[in-house]
Amino acid sequence: MSILEVNHVKKIYTTRFGGARVQALSNVTFSVEEGEFVAIMGESGSGKTTLLNILAALDTPTSGSVKLNGRELVVMKEKEISAFRRDHLGFVFQDFNLLDNFSVKDNIFLPLVLAGEKHQQMQKKLEPIAQRLGISELLDKFPYEISGGQKQRTAVARALITEPELILADEPTGALDSRAADSLLDLFGQINADGQTILMVTHSVKAASSAGRVLFIKDGEVFHQLYRGRNTSQQLYQKISDTLTMIASGGVIHE
Rank of each mutant, 00 (worst) to 15 (best):
K79I: 04
L73S: 04
H88Q: 06
K79M: 08
H119R: 15
H88G: 00
H119N: 13
D100P: 11
P111I: 04
D95R: 13
R86S: 07
S82T: 13
F91D: 01
N97R: 13
F96Y: 15
L112P: 02
K77T: 01
V104G: 00
N97Q: 12
V104I: 11
Q94Y: 00
S103Q: 06
I108W: 11
V113H: 10
N101C: 02
F93C: 12
L89E: 05
R86A: 01
A83W: 14
H88D: 02
L98K: 12
M76L: 13
F109I: 09
R85I: 08
L73K: 06
L89S: 00
S103G: 04
G116D: 04
D106S: 05
L73M: 11
Q121V: 12
F84Q: 10
K118A: 08
S103E: 05
D95C: 11
D100L: 11
I81Y: 07
I81V: 14
N101I: 06
L114M: 15
S103V: 07
L89A: 00
Q94C: 00
Q121G: 04
D100N: 13
K77F: 08
N107S: 06
A115D: 05
V92R: 01
V75Y: 14
E80D: 14
H88L: 01
H119I: 15
L114P: 09
L114Q: 13
G116L: 03
L112R: 01
F109D: 09
F84S: 03
G90F: 07
V74D: 09
D95G: 12
K118R: 13
I81N: 03
Q94R: 01
N97E: 10
S82I: 08
G116E: 03
R85L: 09
L89G: 00
R85T: 07
R86C: 04
F96M: 07
S103K: 03
L89I: 05
L99A: 14
K105T: 08
D106K: 14
V74G: 11
L98W: 14
Q121K: 10
K118Q: 12
E117I: 05
Q120S: 12
L110I: 14
Q94H: 01
D87Y: 12
A115Y: 08
K105E: 15
V104P: 04
I81T: 07
E80S: 14
